Deep mutational scan, measured.
Amino acid sequence: MASDGVVVEIGKVTGSVGTTVEIPVYFRGVPSKGIANCDFVFRYDPNVLEIIGIDPGDIIVDPNPTKSFDTAIYPDRKIIVFLFAEDSGTGAYAITKDGVFAKIRATVKSSAPGYITFDEVGGFADNDLVEQKVSFIDGGVNVGNATPTKGATPTNTATPTK
């Protein structure tokens, strides 16, 4: 695992066909100046998982989280898009600690492993708008004895992609 920078880890949970599971997305290594904004994309298989919603985690402190935390689910493109932009203008609602960034709610549709993997990152910046190093650890849903650990090695991303 990367020793510096922010680590975004997609949790690994267990479920069975027809059940709804909650998959946490963790941030670790949050910089001392916090995270003022970030955007990134995960990939998944809508034939295996139906993403039914995404909720902000406990490290989102904006009293009205829909102003700073936004997501979009595109089953036709097989992606989930995340956007966080601190909304106070003063840094008061920045992410300042490690913990759960988001909770992905999904219904298991198939007995195949439900991988959720890193696809791309736009950027991560602290309260001074300084770009942060970030790496990703894939996860998803274990169905029966299947284990979604494909790509469990962190993917280092030093520069934003478009």
Results as ranks from 00 to 15, higher is better:
Asp138Thr: 09
Ser110Lys: 15
Pro24Trp: 09
Pro46Val: 06
Val108Met: 14
Thr155Phe: 09
Ile73Glu: 12
Phe82Arg: 00
Ala92Arg: 08
Gly151Ser: 11
Cys38Arg: 00
Gly34Pro: 02
Leu49Val: 04
Gly91Pro: 14
Ala102Glu: 04
Val6Thr: 07
Asp98Cys: 06
Asn142Asp: 09
Ser68Thr: 07
Tyr93Val: 14
Val7His: 09
Phe101Glu: 03
Gly57Phe: 15
Val61Met: 03
Phe101Tyr: 03
Asp39Arg: 00
Ile116Gln: 12
Asp98Tyr: 10
Gly29Thr: 12
Asp128Thr: 07
Ala152Phe: 10
Val130Arg: 14
Phe69Pro: 12
Val100Gln: 09
Ala112Thr: 05
Gly144Gln: 08
Asp58Leu: 12
Asn47Thr: 05
Tyr44Glu: 14
Ser111His: 13
Asn145Ile: 14
Pro31Gly: 14
Thr14Leu: 09
Ala72Ile: 00
Glu22Ala: 06
Phe27Met: 13
Gly99Pro: 01
Ala152Thr: 11
Ile116Ala: 05
Gly53Leu: 08
Gly91Phe: 05
Thr90Asp: 13
Arg105Gln: 10
Pro56Arg: 13
Ala72Gly: 02
Lys97His: 10
Ile52Tyr: 10
Lys150Arg: 09
Ala146Thr: 09
Val143His: 12
Thr14Trp: 01
Asp4Tyr: 07
Lys33Gln: 03
Asp119Val: 04
Ala85Ile: 13
Val41Pro: 00
Thr90Asn: 06
Asp128Glu: 03
Asn142Tyr: 12
Phe118Lys: 12
Ala112Asn: 05
Val61Cys: 09
Asn127Glu: 03
Ser68Pro: 15
Val81Pro: 02
Thr107Trp: 06
Gly122Trp: 00
Thr159Gln: 14
Glu86Arg: 00
Asp58Val: 09
Phe136Met: 07
Arg105Glu: 05
Gly140Asp: 11
Pro65Ser: 14
Arg43Cys: 04
Asp70Trp: 15
Phe40Asn: 03
Asn37Gln: 00
Ala112Lys: 08
Phe101Asn: 11
Val21Phe: 13
Pro113Leu: 11
Thr96Cys: 04
Thr157Ile: 10
Ile54Thr: 07
Asn47Leu: 05
Asp39Val: 00
Ser110Arg: 13
Val8Ile: 14
Asn37Gly: 15
Val17Pro: 08
Val141Asn: 13
Ile104Gln: 03
Leu129Ser: 02
Ala94Cys: 11
Asp126Ala: 02
Val61Trp: 15
Thr159Pro: 12
Glu120Cys: 02
Glu9His: 07
Ser68Lys: 04
Ser135Asn: 14
Ala92Thr: 10
Ser68Gly: 11
Ile60Gln: 12
Ile52Gly: 06
Pro148His: 03
Val25Leu: 10
Val100Ala: 11
Ile51Trp: 04
Val81Gln: 00
Phe84Glu: 06
Arg105Ser: 13
Gly114Arg: 11
Gly99Met: 05
Gly11Glu: 09
Ser16Tyr: 06
Ile80Val: 04
Leu83Phe: 02
Phe101Asp: 04
Ile95Trp: 01
Val81Asn: 00
Val25Ser: 08
Lys78Gly: 13
Gly89Pro: 04
Glu120Thr: 02
Ala125Leu: 00
Asp39Leu: 00
Ala72Met: 01
Ser32Asp: 10
Val108Gly: 13
Ile23Tyr: 07
Pro46Tyr: 06
Ile59Thr: 13
Asn47Lys: 05
Phe136Asn: 14
Asp58Lys: 02
Thr71Trp: 02
Gly139Arg: 08
Gly34Arg: 05
Pro113Tyr: 15
Gly34Tyr: 04
Val108Gln: 14
Cys38Gly: 14
Asn64Glu: 15
Phe84Val: 01
Thr66Cys: 11
Lys150Tyr: 08
Pro56Tyr: 07
Pro56Val: 11
Gln132Val: 06
Asn156Lys: 10
Thr19Met: 04
Thr153Asn: 09
Lys67Pro: 14
Ala92Tyr: 13
Pro160Leu: 12
Phe124Ser: 00
Gly5Asn: 07
Lys67Asn: 13
Arg43Glu: 15
Gly123Met: 00
Asp55Met: 15
Gly18His: 10
Phe84Gly: 00
Gly123Asn: 00
Lys97Trp: 15
Thr117Lys: 10
Thr90Gln: 12
Asn37His: 01
Gly89Val: 07
Val48Tyr: 03
Ile10Glu: 05
Ala36Asn: 01
Lys33Asn: 11
Glu50Thr: 07
Ile137Gly: 09
Tyr26Trp: 01
Gly15Trp: 14
Ala106Gly: 14
Pro148Met: 12
Pro160Met: 07
Gly122Glu: 00
Asp76Cys: 01
Val130Gly: 08
Asp138Gln: 13
Asn156Glu: 12
Thr107Pro: 12
Lys67Glu: 04
